[in-house]
């Protein structure tokens, strides 16, 4: 275990929003107690098969979380969705203290596809999800983590060509570490992620995006909504690789604090001078009295004004109307009671 803990890096300021040592100790404890089990995966609306391959971790798997997952992954499943646009639901359950499972998601639909991923175990879950999406596909990935022990979600994808747009909605009532790896090679990806941290949860989303080739476009926008006494953190690094040409990198983080805390670290690494665009931003957003007054004078009551405000925040950055509307509805359904409060 010591070698795993050695990979924990430090930083000039706040070290870690979720303590990786505590997570590693939890897994170690589960291992000693013989309580590392294979989770039960139930899938609705998609074809599923056990995957024979387990080589998904080449390259960027250097965090404590990923290394632990790699060590303890008990099974990997292929989930294939496609044909007509639609929806699939994946339920992950486990009675063990710690479980690790891998999912390969293959999306062959060119329309909007919604994948719901529900983490229901009270114990700690480690989930690695690789997404292989058709060019031009639009995907809404909805992750819901109920109350339970600290968990980990790894989201990896690679896109070789053409344009894709996707939205990710992470809703968590537990401590959840999310690591996302995105790579575009002469292709474009536009991603909007909304993180809803509920109760006393801590949700830490870390993105590593790489842009290679000619004209790659990688646009990542994240909206943090921290409710109650929760903490929402978004950070990551977008890299314009050496030799890439005319790339476009945009990394934006916005935080809407509805009682909770927010941490933001949008990082850029530009290793070439041949970039068309490389920018990032981070800001907190709030509906102030001036905006409320402005909207009230146009006939909107505070509730409607708040809804309009959140709608605008969620939609920003997404060009596909169906995808953004679906995401907006999902977010508003969860945030509305808090806005009214």
């Amino acid at each position: 275990m010591k070698s795993l803990l050695q990979v924990v890096g430090d930083s000039p300021t706040i070290k870690h929003y979720i303590n990786p040592y505590e997570y590693a100790r939890l897994v170690e404890e589960a291992s000693r107690a013989g309580s590392i089990g294979e989770p039960v995966v139930r899938v609705e609306g998609a074809r599923v098969a056990q995957s024979p391959t387990r080589d998904e971790y080449a390259g960027d798997c250097s965090s404590v979380y990923c290394l632990l997952h790699k060590r303890y992954e008990s099974a990997r499943y292929d989930i294939e969705v496609g044909g007509a646009p639609g929806k699939a639901v994946v339920e992950v359950n486990s009675g063990s203290l710690f479980s690790a499972v891998g999912l390969n998601l293959v999306v062959s639909s060119s329309g909007l596809y919604v994948l719901e991923l529900n983490l229901n175990s009270k114990g700690s879950l480690s989930l690695s999800l690789t997404v292989d999406a058709e060019p031009g596909s639009r995907l809404l990935l909805r992750v819901k983590a109920g109350e339970g022990l600290a968990s980990y979600l790894r989201l990896a994808s690679g896109l070789g060509c053409c344009a894709s747009e996707r939205a990710v909605l992470v809703e968590s009532s537990r401590v959840l570490r999310v690591e996302e790896l995105v790579s575009v090679d002469s292709a474009s990806l536009n991603e909007k992620a909304v993180v809803l941290a509920l109760g006393r949860s801590v949700v830490d989303v870390d993105v590593l995006g790489r842009a290679r080739g000619v004209g790659p476009a990688l646009h990542v926008r994240q909206l943090l909504v921290s409710l109650g006494e929760s903490t929402a953190a978004a950070r990551g690094t977008l890299v314009a690789e050496e030799g890439s040409k005319e790339g476009s990198l945009v990394y934006g983080i916005e935080a809407l604090q509805l009682g909770g805390l927010a941490f933001m670290q949008p990082r850029l690494e530009v290793r070439t001078n041949n970039v068309a665009e490389a920018r990032h931003y981070a800001r907190n957003v709030k509906l102030g009295t001036e905006q409320l007054f402005y909207l009230a004078s146009r006939g909107l009551d505070p509730r409607e004004a708040s809804m309009l405000f959140v709608r605008g925040l969620v939609k920003e950055g997404l060009s596909d109307a169906a995808l953004s509307n679906t995401l907006v509805e999902e977010v508003l359904r969860r945030v509305a009671p808090h806005l009214e409060a």
Binding site: L261, A262, R267
Partner: peptide, 9 residues
């Protein structure tokens, strides 16, 4: 050129 900003609210 690398930029690593941190915002803690």
């Amino acid at each position: 050129s690398y930029t690593y900003p941190i915002v803690h609210l």
